[in-house]
Design a protein around this nucleic acid. Structure first.
Lengths: 114, 114
DNA sequence: CTGTATCCAAGAGGATACTG
DNA sequence: CAGTATCCTCTTGGATACAG
């Protein structure tokens, strides 16, 4: 289980519990540009394995940050989308993107894109 | 080793590599209010063990986000302080604090303080 | 007080095979 | 295509003892 809704009083800790892990922010980042299929996310999130992607998607769904829609087709199609709550993380991710570039500049590393 | 400067091109991934872990953000949060001694951080960061705190402080220092100052006294005193780079994370942490409260409201949990 | 050094446990994450 | 099911590895983190 990846999700642990620790009832910590500290709001920063709450946020860290929800998205402070190696993969979730990268998944959410990809979903910012719109609905994505499982396979698209797998390609978009650098070196993530199938199992770990599945685990994290379930956890994000459980926490109310994304929705999962299964289409009864053959072959099956599953789409993931940010909820309103998940979308509200955009400003934070935008700042993290800016800060990441700022950090690289400070360290004399060339900036990049996703 | 906690630090792995993956030379990923994605700035969000860079940020996640540096602070997207269970403890670092909580340590940095405590340092926002000013210089702190080792023991103060240990009390301030909820359930962190001595070893893990030490490991994370070393990693943050290595990444240029905090400084470590040792005073040659008896008993020894060691103070940790944000660098300018570390301090530049404040807006992100502020937003994470706000978002954490927003999340709790959405989930009908009472807001809290650190 | 602020560590370092071990030893261990738990869990995240990777590889592979198989399924509706 | 989008998973599930195992098995295994490695890292993170906790406990304890000890040192400068």
């Amino acid at each position: 289980m990846l999700t642990k809704k620790e009832l910590t009083p500290c709001p920063v800790a709450t946020t860290v519990d929800l998205i402070g892990n190696k993969w979730k922010l990268l998944i959410l980042r990809d979903l910012l540009s719109g609905t994505k299929r499982f396979g698209e996310l797998r390609k978009g999130v650098d070196g993530i394995s199938q199992k770990v992607l599945t685990d994290n998607l379930r956890s994000l769904e459980e926490d109310g940050l994304i929705t999962r829609t299964v289409y009864a087709e053959v072959p099956p199609r599953v789409e993931y989308e940010l909820t309103e709550l998940g979308g509200s993380l955009q400003p934070i991710m935008k700042m993290m993107e800016e800060w990441g570039n700022f950090y690289k500049e400070s360290m004399k590393i060339e900036a990049g894109e996703c």
